[in-house]
Simulated scan of single mutants.
Amino acid sequence: MISLNFDIQSFLKQQWQKQPIVIRNAIKDFEDPITADELAGLACEEVISSRVVVTTDDDWQIIQGPFEDYEQFGSEKWQLLVQAVNHWYPEIEPLVDAFRFIPDWRFDDVMVSFATPNGGVGPHIDNYDVFILQGEGQRAWKVGDKGNHQQRNGDKNTPLVEDFDPIIEVTLNKGDILYIPPGFPHCGQTLTNAMSYSLGFRAPSQQELISEVADFLIDNNSGHQRFTSDQETCVAGNVVEAHQKKLMSLLSELCSKPDAYQPILGQLLSRNRFDLDVCPDEHIDTEALKDAIEAGALIQRIGGLKVLRLENDGEKRLFIDGESYALSTLDEAALGYLSENLTYDNEWLRFNIANEDLQSFFVDILKMGYVYLTE
């Protein structure tokens, strides 16, 4: 278990999505849950997103993984970054659990990096909240204020920005955390060989929401209501303002009805951006499930899986990785237990497994590989 050594409520009130902050010794006696060699091993896998950033004179070269050899990069001025390590390496999960004071739907992934001296990724701006936890080694960080920051060298395709005046300039040691909200430019430079853990929290953009609405309407053959009007103008080439507003009200009306937007939000917010390490159980059935529970089995979620419910949902259901699972005979307490817990203990399973909806639910997600039976 990992405990955070700061006042969570004060942080949420004063810093969350407002101001960057350095939290010294945020995790006491922190020890890296993964080694540099183990991280390099993950970056060998095709299915895992990884990259190396090489620092050159006033520039940063990005090389996409997978990687089999790092000797080409030398002993300094490069950094390995591996996304969604929490999906593939169970020892990262306690770190994720410590940050569940922020709702799961916001959580993106844990990116882990190994950097050599003078390695970094250059000054850039993220569109998500990030907690940067320092492991072994030291890294120097600069954070600037929000503002009209120009893309580096006028390149509209680069994520990098021009140098900025820092409002925070700090060296992180093991267990320190640097929190950066969206929109604040920042850059880090490694002082010694170092491990870092970036916990990202992301919310959907307008573009993503509109795209999800469109996909849902097409997939479900819905949203067929059309514009109607009780009067027309006599100007052929003009779209009057009243018609403009009424056309757009078709969207606002759709998005104001919970029975219309709740399944859309549930699917969008439960979906993972990165691949999950699924473990399908193709042979499981109801009897095998009940036998395993009777023998003392627990049910464990895989790393990174989101199990969400919507407050005041019009239906009793859960959303998992973009899909809806109906559980019409379960009460709110049971739905809450399933969405809040990463492990479903044997006592709870024994007490509730007689419910046929629950049996079907567990068989379905065991077959999908989202959970697995363990002792």
Rank of each mutant, 00 (worst) to 15 (best):
S3D: 11
N5V: 05
F6Q: 01
D7Y: 04
F11Y: 06
Q19C: 07
Q19F: 08
D29N: 14
D29V: 00
I34G: 01
E38H: 02
E45P: 08
E45H: 11
D58I: 01
I62S: 11
G74V: 01
P90M: 03
V96W: 03
D97R: 15
D104T: 11
D108G: 05
D109Q: 06
A115V: 02
G120W: 09
G122M: 00
P123I: 10
F131T: 02
K142G: 04
G144H: 01
K146H: 04
G147N: 06
Q151E: 08
R152I: 13
E162D: 11
E162P: 13
T171D: 02
L172H: 03
I177D: 02
I177A: 01
L178V: 07
L178E: 11
F184V: 05
S196G: 04
Q206T: 15
L217A: 09
R226G: 07
G237E: 04
E241D: 13
H243G: 09
H243N: 12
M248Q: 08
S249N: 14
P258M: 09
D259G: 03
Q262H: 14
D275C: 12
D277F: 10
V278G: 08
D285H: 08
D291M: 12
I293W: 03
E294V: 03
G296V: 10
L298P: 01
I299R: 04
I302Y: 03
G303R: 05
K306E: 05
V307P: 07
L308I: 14
S328N: 13
E332K: 14
Y337L: 07
T343A: 11
E347D: 12
R350A: 13
A354Y: 11
N355P: 05
D357S: 14
F362V: 08
K367W: 00
